[in-house]
């Protein structure tokens, strides 16, 4: 794997291979010495144009468990705000000798520009770009689902036969996009539930089904309910009238939680708006995988960094 920019173009086999390696990485996390020497001498740069402490420390932990050297680079601004440009930053990192760049950027496509520009030769991992994709989040979600439903038999399996309902601000969510592609590639059936204002024009061509009503979506048994974070500023832009109305219609409250099947799990990429898209009861219930998602994130990111940085450089898709 040369770069990981999106899940859109990952094949089923590639995705399963990443999840399988992540299983091995997860085993390491249970040992007393949680460290492997695999990436000794490699330099991983966490290049964050947007603040995201959660994602950054997850990548940092992953790189360190593989013995890579980690440099955290919190870049201020972009060429929009006349801060340092992506190009200058990339060339600086190339000069430092970065082997992999984990990039978080507010602009959709920025990691792809970095990977194809020729400014830097390093492998690029997209750690969230604008409203485009967040591929490692989708991989850790898929990993979490697979472990929850298949346990020790997870290796080598995809998600065929499972159904996933993704609820919330799909329009602005890179997590929703990456999950829609990845989970369907892995054979899961995906339903998106959102107010029509928070679904992108063109979503009807995605390999998913759409429901405007959470109650009607939950009337059909589902294995996974994934709640997306809703940002309060969407309210002022008239995407929905009030937080209260949103919570009432599209929030996973205690009453809806009680209606879920026994085996249904509840996921959230974090950080959660308790009381808005998810109630505390749902967030803290035994169905909730929120904390597992965090620890699985490290395993999945270890797998991605390992696959990106071991072996000879080759240009795979």
């Amino acid at each position: 794997m040369r770069h990981l920019l999106s899940t859109r173009h990952l094949s089923r086999d590639e995705a399963v291979a990443i999840l399988d390696v992540a299983e091995d990485m997860a085993d390491v996390s249970t040992r007393e010495i949680k460290k492997l020497p695999a990436l000794r001498g490699k330099t991983v740069v966490n290049l964050f144009f947007e603040d995201s402490t959660r994602t950054r420390i997850s990548f940092e932990a992953a790189a360190k468990r593989l013995s890579a050297d980690v440099i955290n680079f919190a870049a201020k601004g972009s060429s929009v705000s006349k801060g340092e440009s992506l190009k200058d930053t990339a060339q600086t990192l190339a000069a430092i000798g970065a082997d992999a760049v984990v990039v978080r950027h507010g602009a959709s496509g920025a990691p792809q520009v970095l990977a194809t520009s020729g400014w830097i030769d390093a492998g690029v991992v997209n750690a969230g770009d604008g409203t485009h994709e967040h591929p490692t989040q989708a991989l850790l979600d898929a990993f979490t689902i697979r472990r929850r439903f298949f346990g020790a038999d997870a290796r080598g399996r995809d998600l065929a036969g499972l159904s996933v309902v993704i609820v919330g601000d799909v329009l602005h969510s890179r997590v929703a996009r990456s999950n829609a592609w990845l989970l369907t590639t892995l054979g899961a059936e995906v339903r998106l539930v959102a107010p029509p204002t928070l679904l992108p024009v063109g979503v009807e061509t995605w390999p998913v089904t759409i429901d405007y009503s959470l109650d009607s979506a939950l009337a059909t048994p589902t294995d996974v309910v994934m709640m997306l974070r809703v940002q309060a500023e969407r309210m002022s832009a008239a995407f929905f009238p009030t937080a209260r109305e949103y919570a009432r219609l599209w929030g996973l409250d205690d009453e809806r939680l009680a209606r879920l099947d026994e085996g249904t799990i509840v996921m959230h990429p974090g950080p959660m708006n308790r009381g808005l898209e998810i109630s505390s009861g749902a967030a803290d219930s035994a169905r909730s995988t929120v904390l597992e998602q965090v620890s699985n994130g490290v395993s999945v990111r270890m797998a991605v960094l390992y696959l990106l940085l071991s072996g000879e450089r080759e240009d795979l898709a």
Binding site: R8, S108, G109, D129, G130, T131, H132, E133, R174, R177, P200, V201, G202, V203, T205, W206
Partner: peptide, 16 residues
Amino acid sequence: AQMNEGIVSSELGLAG
């Protein structure tokens, strides 16, 4: 707005 609003913008996550 960043590009034509439609199928491609929905995938690329660019404002339509």
